[in-house]
């Protein structure tokens, strides 16, 4: 994935680059530029998948850069970083249809989530779930996009979706969302009818199953990390528990339907 960072403060630019290169599950090709004009020139030849730009830069500012990039059809995914929470800026940013408007201090997790989002939608991405069609078995029929879910539950689900690749427990979720662990499990239970671990497995296994069926060049070990199980053993255990089969058996059973 090609990422262009336009930031006149080298500390910040390098920091972001460091985060992106060290904490993503995929390979990142990152270029740094120090001002908007430079960024535009580089972008024309580099064709980045994502541009992260500071709002205040010499010559061309972040918002103008986003507009140029969009008009020249170079890149439509721009994340703006700003020290200002001024409403007008955010409004202009929205008008230019930037992807997001991040306030300093930058929330690392949110940034990574955004980058993952962009990555997932790349045609070349292994995790591009747009083309996936999981087998029509009862396990995958759980619907988590219910509009009647309370705000907290929506946040829980979205948090799990953002962080499934990490080590999630009821406690980490509770720390992150400031919700009481009991309340989290009660909410999940009441509205979805399943337990928290079931829900976590569901989201992780969706990814894992997609990868098994549609990305044949990824090993089971890699998949276990990408899906957040961190070990093949735990992945196997989850498959056994939820789908009553091993990942291999799952691949064998459903691969033929699609290929």
């Amino acid at each position: 994935m090609k990422i262009l960072i336009a930031e006149d403060e080298s500390n910040i630019a390098e920091g972001i680059a460091s985060i992106l290169s060290s904490q993503t599950t995929f390979k990142c090709q990152i270029k740094l530029t120090e001002d908007g004009k430079d960024a535009l020139t580089v972008a024309r030849s580099f064709h980045p998948d994502l541009v992260i730009a500071d709002i205040r830069m010499p010559l061309i500012n972040g918002l103008e850069l986003a507009e140029y990039l969009k008009n020249e059809n170079i890149c439509s995914k721009v994340i703006i970083i700003s020290g200002y929470s001024v409403f007008e800026y955010a409004q202009t940013a929205l008008r230019h249809k930037v992807m997001d408007y991040l306030l300093k201090p930058i929330d690392k997790n949110h940034l990574l989530y955004l980058v993952n989002e962009v990555y997932d939608q790349l045609p070349s991405s292994q995790l591009n779930s747009a083309n996936w069609k999981l087998p029509d078995i009862p396990y995958f029929s759980l619907n988590l996009n219910h509009k009647d879910f309370p705000t907290s539950l929506q946040k829980i689900i979205s948090c799990i979706r953002k962080n499934y690749m990490r080590d999630i427990s009821l406690q980490t979720l509770s720390d992150e969302l400031m919700l009481h662990p009991n309340y989290i499990s009660t909410l999940i239970n009441r509205y979805t009818g399943v337990s928290f671990t079931y829900l976590l497995d569901f989201i992780r296994l969706q990814k894992a199953c997609g990868l098994i069926l549609f990305e044949s060049d990824i090993t089971i070990a890699e998949i276990s990390y990408i899906a957040g199980y961190n070990s093949e053993r735990r992945l196997y255990y989850a498959f056994q528990k939820r789908l009553n089969c091993t990942p291999g058996e799952f691949k064998m059973r459903y691969e033929k339907i699609y290929i």
Binding site: N11, I12, E14, G15, S18, G83, K104, P105
Partner: peptide
């Protein structure tokens, strides 16, 4: 202030 803090922070980040 934010900018300076962010500079320090990102510096730390680049040093992991």
């Amino acid at each position: 202030l934010y900018n300076t803090l962010e500079n320090i922070r990102m510096n730390a980040e680049s040093h992991h």
